[in-house]
Amino acid sequence: MMISVGNIEKSYGEVKALRGVSLEVKEGELFGLIGPDGAGKTSLIRILVTLLKPDVGSATVNELDVVKDFRKLRNQIGYMPGRFSLYPDLTVEENMTFFATVFGTTIEENYHLVKDIYQQIEPFKERLAGRLSGGMKQKLALSCALIHAPKVLVLDEPTTGVDAVSRKEFWEMLKRLQKMGITILVSTPYMDEANLCDRVALIQDGKILTIDTPEKVTQSFGHKLWAIRSDNMYLCIRHLREHSESDSVFAFGEYLHVTWKDQDMQADEMEKYLSDLGHTNVEVKRTEPGIEDVFMDLMQKHDN
């Protein structure tokens, strides 16, 4: 196991950030830590990169304990914090050189690792890092995190606040790094990014809800899922929630995702219910569950 976390708890005063988290990441895996803001993702990541000590439990990265062996471990981890954490008053190249020097290496030595990414920002290497666009900043930060050829790359919400195109590019880069044999742990609040990971852990309120491949996670969704819409979505949510047989109703893009306590509920029944309440242009169809549906479902169970 590349990363192994055993029953970790962490509190900040009264606030419990992690309540007994366990997970394992295999070597060479692209592992996603999926959860909303405040779920405990950053706390877990900071423990793994030796920035915080767990209150209870232990964790190892590449067989090294994150508390006892933190010095050795710091050489082997590439870490990209959630906030842009490079020097805005240094140029792209100066940032790279600095981090290479700090890790006792040079840009040339590990150029093959960062080549794909760095080439895209190399035309701007004389520019101050603070004047880069959001996407380019992320690329630079990733290059800096990789410059010492780490065995494990840990990224805390790397795509938060980045435009859609840059997000897609960023995930493609992660895939290529994975092919080079780097184990990657990435956290994100975006459910749609879960499908890009080998395995994901859904985390909420400092607890892991489930760990599996994205496919298996979605398959675990035990209900028939319906996508419903009408001209008045606001009333539509209310009316469906008022229905005695409805189980869960969530807005999901331009549709509502709905499950029923009665799995045999038919489409025309639902259409009729809504039409009778005065809805126009009612549309009802079956749909496949996504990670977010599973998440909502698990969260609901968890809360109860």
């Binding site: 990169v49 030796t50 920035l51 010095r71 710091r74 050489n75 981890i77 870490y79 914090p81 906030r83 842009f84 954490s85 490079l86 020097y87 805005p88 981090f99 700090v102 890790f103 006792g104 800096c144």
Partner: peptide
């Protein structure tokens, strides 16, 4: 404040 200390701490420095 800028968060760069986080990276410096994680480095072998």
């Amino acid at each position: 404040e800028m968060g760069t200390m986080e990276i410096l701490l994680v480095s072998p420095l």
